[in-house]
Design a protein around this nucleic acid. Structure first.
Lengths: 167, 167
DNA sequence: GTTGACGGTTCTAAAATAGAACTTTAAGAC
DNA sequence: GTCTTAAAGTTCTATTTTAGAACCGTCAAC
């Protein structure tokens, strides 16, 4: 499958993966949330080649995750800042960090701690149900085809039994 | 930067990205959460080459996200199931899906809906603070170096001012 | 004794990435 | 005036990764 066809899949995960599903995009976004904004700053803090950095920044701008705005005239210089769409990636970034905190730390402990300004405490992110507020786990969730599924739902059952022809 | 050096970075995001930070790993994990378990099932539902599928499954087993267990003897056949470490990836998967639901849907609407078994309602995932229960946003969070940071914190300030030599 | 399922491995061509050098515009030092 | 530096890229070649297809080994069923 080509990268381009990913964003047309009838799957919100696949479409999001088309935007952030590579190593460098996620690391660039990490830097964005740490207030990094300029090409050379990204380049200094990530061991990324200039070529790929330019490429990924362009992609993130194209998808509306970053905005490229001039911060000086003559010579024109730009910086990259998160749009609202980009800021909305925060739960993804935080859940990735949290999983690493739980499963990938060495004996020295966590590389970074997070403090919630509102309540003042060091915290972990918790994912809860928007309706009842209880923490979520995979086993407590049922999935249903939505209006944007590949085919109208009554057909889907049969298609699955006959085998997945076109996917 | 090589893939291998990613998992040694003093950053929980980078270490997690070493495990799941590529297109195919995330799509394979999506299938795992949809109860797909066998090589040929993965191959049928993803347009992945057998070569890469074998490679990624091996990687996920190596990192302890999946377990490879025989489901029949002679001939030996295996299936891949999520470990607890793998099940803990659920918030990452769900936050990725949710971002896609908000920012990447077309006019037809969401491809998939999620129902919470506990309360029975269709829901969205919400990320909240473990301490006060309020929803989290990037701007309400302060970061601090933790015990596993690259260097003891007092030095970090100066190093940053002098420039980032080794990163 | 041939066919088919399953779970891979091996092969070549195409695409992506790494690493380094080069470019452009303009300011500041000498 | 000339030289150096800075920022934000672009261009180049070599290496690595991925795509796409064919092949392999084991067993069961026909």
């Amino acid at each position: 499958m080509k990268w381009d066809s990913l964003e047309d899949e009838p799957c919100s995960l696949a479409r999001t993966v088309a935007v952030i599903g590579d190593r460098w995009s996620l690391l660039i976004l990490r830097e964005c949330f740490l207030r990094i904004r300029r090409f050379d700053e990204f380049q200094a803090s990530l061991e990324i080649t200039r070529h790929l950095l330019a490429d990924r920044l362009k992609k993130l701008v194209r998808f509306g995750v970053l905005r490229r705005i001039p911060y000086q005239e003559s010579p024109k210089r730009y910086e990259y800042i998160l749009t609202q769409k980009g800021l909305d990636l925060y739960p993804i970034i935080m859940s990735i960090v949290h999983w690493g905190n739980i499963h990938m730390v060495d004996s020295r402990g966590r590389p970074m701690l997070h403090q919630h300004k509102s309540c003042g405490k060091m915290f972990d992110p918790v994912m809860v149900c928007s309706e009842c507020g209880e923490p979520l786990s995979a086993k407590a969730v049922h999935v249903h085809p939505g209006p944007g599924a590949r085919r109208p739902s009554p057909v889907l059952e049969q298609r699955t039994k006959r085998g997945l022809e076109s996917r």
